[in-house]
Design a protein around this nucleic acid. Structure first.
Lengths: 347, 347
DNA sequence: ATGAAAGCGCTAACAG
DNA sequence: CTGTTAGCGCTTTCAT
């Protein structure tokens, strides 16, 4: 049957010849089935199948001035949070017959710019990205040139660009409130990268809620660092190297939490007895470690899907709400936090 | 496919006008700087920059009959192993100025076929994929049509397609040998999906090595299931619901290990006292859980890079070795396995 | 060293 | 309902 056995991929012309019709009839039969006689259509479709015809997307897109393609720039695909965002985007897009070009910026502004340029050249219908601050100008330029842009997880500050984010401030307040309600009064935060909005917002939210209880974090109780396992480890070791370490610790993302957990083991600290631990962002192993982690969970997958939805809506010219969309976080109570014991009676 | 609301992107013609030269001179100045007078070149480059010209990759690729693009079909981007493979591919490709189109097949043969079709239409220079069995015919067709194809992590059985995989058999043997050397004689395997070559190979390797010691696994001691956290959980609960459970357990991938760990906690089994546990595939949390996991680690990132390298080499017509490339695994000894206490030998 | 012109494969008028 | 034709933006002979 398939006698395209070797080489040149079938194009419209070869299908046309095979079916004994013109090139444009084939095109129509394929993309506008209703505008062609049933009999013809069937013959064409058959020929196409027989020759293993696959439309040349390049030519199609060139002609159509765009393609059903979106660009996605993820800051680090190795981090499960980001991978899940990516999957959300990809799933939604693919359900709507859009293809996603995935790029990994590695949190590097230059790579980000480069990819933005490239995606532009590919005439993608829109771009979703987890931006770095370095990209603002490029992002704005792209948006101004008419390409829909949506930021996920954080915002670059670029004007006229929509965004989908977790409600980091509220989430972090939730964490603080939970600890406060447990009677805690001695806090620490491993805050992560405050060059990224999510990092800043989580720190701020936590502090805000503590203020409510007239508690102010001393500088030594706040550690900012890169969003890495190792940074979490180091930050923890430093903070707990001091004579009077906190009794309740908020760790602002799952990557750092990994390092914190290792440090905790190495230092022989007992959770939640010696230390109550709460994280931001759940992870598959959050319920596997001992004790299972209490965390502020994000709607990670949904973040991706929603970003994709916003992009597709605006590509297809639908009414779209502008500005920033915040997705709620949720407290998952497991076993890493305990009620504070009064220091008077204990010890 | 929405039309620009902003100003039309600069094309060759507008740059040409601006620089007062012909379209083809601009093209040359941009892609073949040496074939144009220095003065002209400079003028052109200047104009291009001024107009914010970005080459239309679609047109370029159409004309060139191909683009510096490769397709990558990952079976499940949410699984860190696969994400890391993807990163390996993307990194290598991007270092060599290739763009990667990432697709997520969700282990679904139909989606896989669909993506293969699409990538073909994009005239990608090559395709890297983690295949399902369902795809064999499509994969072969693609390869036969002249597109370089490389399979990663597993093989579909398609003829004439190269592959990069871990040496699963040797790795699983390593696991068994390690346990054997620890004096164990009562084994269990949670094998995962044996429709996937990696699953089959790991099971086989483990059994092979046991045979060396004249040990044969009873059916109740082998559990095949899907590669999911939950499947691991269920498999474990079943296996350990029986009166005489194994003393040493091999879990064939990290996803299932998560579930196994949860089950272990729920059942109150002590590792490694009651049970020695060894996994296949390391993960970031392997050293975070209690006790830290002894595992057979794969060269995950390298798997991706190597696949990318093979694809680029064959795209660029370099000499390439055909067939299957196996990457060695490595035993990472942590604390989840103990010497068997039972009867005979103590060393 | 530069320009004119011919397509790459496709879609969309515009005819018939 | 179907065929003819004109490009989409680019690279590349082939002239000049």
């Amino acid at each position: 049957m398939a006698r395209d056995s070797g080489n040149d991929p079938a194009d419209l012309e070869s299908v046309a010849k095979h079916a004994g019709v013109s090139i444009s009839t084939v095109s129509r039969a394929l993309t506008r089935p209703d505008r062609v006689a049933t009999a013809t259509r069937e013959r064409v479709l058959e020929s196409a199948a027989e020759l293993g015809y696959a439309p040349n997307q390049l030519a199609r897109s060139l002609r159509m001035q765009g393609s059903k393609t979106i660009g996605l720039i993820i800051s680090d695909i190795l981090v499960p949070f980001h991978a899940e965002v990516a999957k959300g985007v990809e799933d939604f897009a693919s359900e709507h017959h859009y293809t996603t070009i995935l790029c990994n910026s590695s949190e590097n502004g230059n790579k980000e710019k480069q990819y933005l340029e490239l995606l532009k050249g590919f005439k993608v219908g829109g771009v979703i990205l987890e931006p770095t601050e370095a990209g603002v100008a490029t992002i704005e330029a792209l948006a101004r040139a008419g390409t829909p842009v949506v930021e996920v997880d954080r915002i670059s500050g670029a004007k006229g660009v929509r965004a989908v984010l977790s409600d980091n401030v509220a989430g972090a307040r939730q964490a603080a409130r939970y600890l406060l309600d447990l009677g805690h009064s001695s806090f620490g935060v491993i805050a992560g990268d405050i060059k990224i909005t999510s990092g800043r917002e989580r720190l701020k939210g936590f502090q805000d809620e503590l203020k409510t209880a007239k508690i102010k974090l001393e500088p030594g109780r706040i550690r900012t660092c890169r969003n890495l396992d190792e940074s979490g480890f180091n930050a923890f070791v430093e903070m707990f190297g001091h004579p009077d370490p906190p009794k309740a610790l908020f760790v602002c993302n799952a990557q750092m939490m990994g390092g914190v957990l290792r440090a905790i083991r190495e230092l022989g600290i007992r959770v939640p007895k010696d230390l109550s631990l709460i994280g931001f962002d759940d992870s598959t192993w959050g319920s596997v470690v001992d004790p299972p982690l209490t965390v502020i969970a994000q709607q990670t997958y949904e973040l991706g899907r929603m970003a994709a939805q916003m992009i597709l809506d605006s590509i297809e010219g639908k009414k779209i709400k502008s500005g920033i969309t915040r997705l709620e976080t949720r407290l998952i109570e497991r076993e890493s936090c305990a009620r504070a014991v009064s220091s008077l009676r204990k010890r």
